[in-house]
């Protein structure tokens, strides 16, 4: 009773639940993450700068950024189509299709990696078809993009789907009655409504793709300057016990992904408004 007076809280266990939350968060997340910063703080600026701007590392930023961008762009388009089909149409096997979207969340990335590699290698089913056209997929940036499309697709679909479900078809009908074409209805009425959710999905997929390792490492071929992604550079520095370089490069990646997260949160605030109806 006395305690209650002091905190003016009726529901019990504030102290206990806060205590457990903060201490577990610190031990598992905050202290280990801080060790990254502490470790880099012991390095000189010059060493850090050299570690993160070596030409091989710079090339890896380029590969990581461009493949993640391409994959997320493909996912943004395909994600909207998939979400649209799942929300608006009725057709056989729809439930199974809906369930399959979640597969990349459930399937271990290493398994996805070796499966996609064997499919898209020049001897595989898909790779064989494309190699006749003179296009190699596995062990090229195209292969990396394919793996990242696999990883990122559920992010966009699951971001757009609930918004489309909430969208009132009344406006589309009105526009249709007034003679607007389907293309015009889509761009003028539907697209502005779903745009924040598409951007959220795009951002989440992009952030995940930047850091992805398991599925990419098999399909990439990992040639320095050509198909080496940044997480792989960190990995190879670690295998050579060059912790200083690995840590400095990791810090660059960390900053990049926090930046993506920050932008996503900005867009998401707007998206939540649309979902909850208050605008």
């Amino acid at each position: 009773m006395k305690k209650r007076k002091k905190t003016k809280r009726v529901i019990p266990y504030f102290g206990l639940s806060m205590g457990v939350t903060i201490s577990m968060l610190s031990v598992i997340v905050l202290i280990p993450l801080a060790s990254l910063v502490i470790y880099t703080a012991q390095m000189s600026w010059q060493d850090i700068w050299e570690a993160i701007t070596r030409s091989r590392v710079m090339a890896s930023y380029r590969v990581s950024f461009l493949t993640a961008l391409a994959a997320s762009a493909i996912n943004a388009v395909m994600g909207v189509i998939l979400a649209w089909v799942l929300v608006r149409y009725k057709f056989p096997f729809k439930r199974i299709l809906d369930g399959m979207i979640e597969l990349p969340f459930a399937l271990p990335t290493a398994v996805a990696g070796i499966a996609l590699t064997s499919l898209t290698a020049d001897t595989g089913i898909i790779g064989g078809f494309f190699s006749k056209l003179g296009i190699s997929i596995a062990y090229t940036p195209i292969g990396i993009t394919v793996a990242l499309v696999f990883i990122g697709i559920p992010f966009v679909v699951r971001a757009v789907q609930p918004v489309l479900e909430k969208l009132d078809p009344v406006y589309e009908e009105a526009a249709g009655v007034m003679g607007a074409s389907r293309v015009r209805i889509f761009w003028k009425i539907i697209f502005p409504e779903i745009l924040p959710s598409v951007l959220t999905g795009f951002g989440l997929a992009f952030g995940r793709c930047l850091g992805e390792y398991g599925s990419v490492v098999f399909i990439a071929g990992n040639k320095p300057f050509e198909t080496e992604i940044t997480p792989l550079v960190i990995m190879s520095e670690l295998q050579e016990y060059d912790y200083a370089s690995a840590t400095a490069i990791a810090l660059v990646m960390l900053v990049a992904s926090f930046l993506v997260l920050f932008l996503v949160n900005l867009v998401q605030a707007r998206n939540t408004k649309i979902l909850t109806g208050g605008r």
Binding site: L33, G211, I234
Partner: peptide, 29 residues
């Protein structure tokens, strides 16, 4: 702030997730 901090691990690359524990408990710690 608390909810943002809880969500942090999702945005961290798996390789970095491994690295931070090596730095926290490994030989150079």
């Amino acid at each position: 702030l608390l909810t943002t901090l809880i969500d942090l691990p999702v945005t961290v690359s798996p390789v970095i997730a491994g690295l931070i524990f090596v730095l926290t408990f490994g030989r150079q710690s």
